[in-house]
Simulated scan of single mutants.
Amino acid sequence: MANVNRNQSFTDKGMEFIEVWDYVGEASFRGFIAEKQMGNATEKTLFLFFQELAGLPLKEGLVALIELATDCYNCDRLVICLDRQTHALHQLIRDLGWVGFELITLSHWIDDGRNPRTGKEGTSGLADTSDFWLFVGMEL
């Protein structure tokens, strides 16, 4: 059902890029796996970018992506990045909500320099939203 290409050149830096082809749904997804240190544990998140999905069947591909994230990469989360210009975006978000996705920001992955004791903000200046992408995520 799906073919996965891995770009190993960035693996040494803690990030792996992937491209998934869903031959049944006639869609392709590009993404990366990011790691975040959470105390003594490392949390892994699969980020996938969905573009040009109008009218494509996503059910089988989505199930395969969730299995890929959990079984192959041992990810703790899956984040789908949706192009804000996607046709019928609100319906797509609603459909993904039935599966267990919810709208999120990237604040979980941004080290904003907050002092953990005072809660005062640092100076990272990174935005946790995007003008181009809308983020939906789920814990696996």
Rank of each mutant, 00 (worst) to 15 (best):
A2Q: 07
A2N: 07
V4G: 01
V4I: 15
V4S: 06
N7E: 11
Q8R: 11
S9K: 12
F10E: 13
D12K: 12
K13C: 13
G14S: 13
M15E: 15
M15G: 01
E16G: 08
F17Y: 13
F17K: 09
E19W: 12
E19R: 14
W21G: 06
W21F: 14
V24N: 10
A27M: 14
A27S: 13
F32G: 05
F32R: 08
E35D: 04
Q37E: 15
Q37C: 06
M38K: 12
G39F: 07
G39N: 09
E43T: 01
K44Y: 00
F47C: 01
Q51C: 09
Q51R: 12
E52M: 02
L53K: 04
P57A: 09
P57Q: 11
L58C: 10
E60C: 03
L62S: 01
L65S: 03
I66N: 15
I66S: 14
T70M: 09
C72A: 15
N74M: 08
R77F: 15
C81F: 05
L82S: 00
L82N: 00
D83T: 04
D83M: 08
R84P: 02
R84T: 10
Q85D: 14
T86M: 14
T86I: 02
A88D: 12
I93C: 07
L96K: 00
W98V: 08
W98L: 11
W98R: 13
W98S: 07
W98M: 09
V99C: 09
G100R: 07
F101D: 02
E102G: 14
E102A: 14
I104P: 04
L106K: 10
L106E: 12
H108I: 06
H108Y: 14
W109T: 04
W109A: 05
I110P: 00
N115T: 11
P116M: 09
P116F: 13
R117T: 15
R117E: 15
G119T: 06
E121D: 07
G125Q: 04
A127L: 12
S130R: 01
F132A: 00
F132M: 02
W133R: 02
L134M: 08
M138R: 09
L140R: 02
